[in-house]
Design a protein around this nucleic acid. Sequence first.
DNA 1: TCACCCAGTTGATCTGTGTCAAGGATCAGG
DNA 2: CCTGATCCTTGACACAGATCAACTGGGTGA
Lengths: 247, 247
Amino acid sequence: MNVPRHKIAPQCAECPIRHKAVCARCDADELEQLDRIKYYRSFEAGQTIIWSGDKMDFVGSVVSGVATLTQTMEDGRTQMVGLLLPSDFVGRPGRDGAPYDVLATTDIVMCCFRKIPFEKMMNETPHIAHRLLEMTLDELDAAREWMLVLGRKTAREKIASLLCIIGRRDASLTPGGHGDTMEFDLPLTREAMADYLGLTLETVSRQMSALRKDGVIELRGKRHVIVPDTGRLMDVAGDDSDGGLYG
Amino acid sequence: MNVPRHKIAPQCAECPIRHKAVCARCDADELEQLDRIKYYRSFEAGQTIIWSGDKMDFVGSVVSGVATLTQTMEDGRTQMVGLLLPSDFVGRPGRDGAPYDVLATTDIVMCCFRKIPFEKMMNETPHIAHRLLEMTLDELDAAREWMLVLGRKTAREKIASLLCIIGRRDASLTPGGHGDTMEFDLPLTREAMADYLGLTLETVSRQMSALRKDGVIELRGKRHVIVPDTGRLMDVAGDDSDGGLYG
DNA sequence: TCACCCAGTTGATCTGTGTCAAGGATCAGG
DNA sequence: CCTGATCCTTGACACAGATCAACTGGGTGA
């Protein structure tokens, strides 16, 4: 489950898709092709990037900021089914409709590729198709790991699991065990955390307070989190896995 | 979300991988190649097919019977993260370890392919890689849909959602709306249903009884289910989608 | 400076589901 | 026929988390 992330090659820093999504080896030809069909889009915090069911004419990846994938029932109950952090890929090659809403939770910049030429390129470049399969398998693992969180963990464990994931992604890419510390800003409101965890925002708030009281985390303001002992947080999360979700 | 299933071409009936997993067009060459690396395995109900973390040296698909993918926490809490019905694919091309336990819930026959030659064939046949990407995207959609069930639905809605999925897969492939009926055998114990739904077996039993009392379902014995009005069951499931999960 | 607003916190109470326990139905083997 | 095993059902009660409601703190604009 612990997929090491590629280091960002200097020439690829601008657009994550180059190394993460598609071009693991930064093949010059492929980069040039990608460059030709690439464009950027910005969204403000709270804006909807795509509505569920809309036709999606692009694929792309997050350059900066955070977005979420959410599903909503008729009566308004919502469940977040994915978290998009920088370098994560969005879009379904070969599919037309978006299966869920994509929402910007912070200001966000995306690097997009028009879908038709991207698919054409994918068909001609087995290398890209391979990389996409691998990414999709990673996402599937993450989704299934999250099913365990949603179905069987307590509120306290859920919060700890979420903090592990965000901390791991945001703070550093080190393994993180007993003794290690983490420090990061939560890119989500309490309500968004609740939607991700299948809880209410009140329960999220209470459990955050409880973890603070127990010394598992420290809070500076409402969003900034300090984890004095990553291993302890992971123990609370009840995770025997190393928390290496989402690659 | 409603992915129509391929009709089974007569020449492909024996081994689902031919049409479903890999060979949408039944290309003769590919079939011959697949035939050479193919073998069958049987398991009895209750048997473990693969343990989480084991090296997995094959991929394959279910010919008959039902299996489940499950994750287990250290303290024994378990969550089922996938249901494998006939024609479903198992295995992660390009990955070595199994990420979860695979358990036979009924007697089951699988059609397997040794992993190395299968991957070699996949690399040489973009067609197969494509089909696998498509299947993985389907599984991802299903997993995310299930996250909504686990995170936000009530016990009653969960049961109804599960019955929809199993009924749809087992009974027929018709759309199923108001007025239509369904009839099928549950391939799962109450405990397995509970593990799939993030509930206890007692709650599953109680809600099954409640649905029976309300006339939403009828039970003949413990496992045989009759749904007099599929549309009504779907209403109880609270699903605006057509329940067309798992293809 | 004040008023307002929003995100978050905390308290009181309610309820759906878990937990524990007893008992029923079905089946296989002796 | 009885016996034990397995799976399922039902009841009584407990509790985690939901719900409803009041309040806090910090930022923004007039």
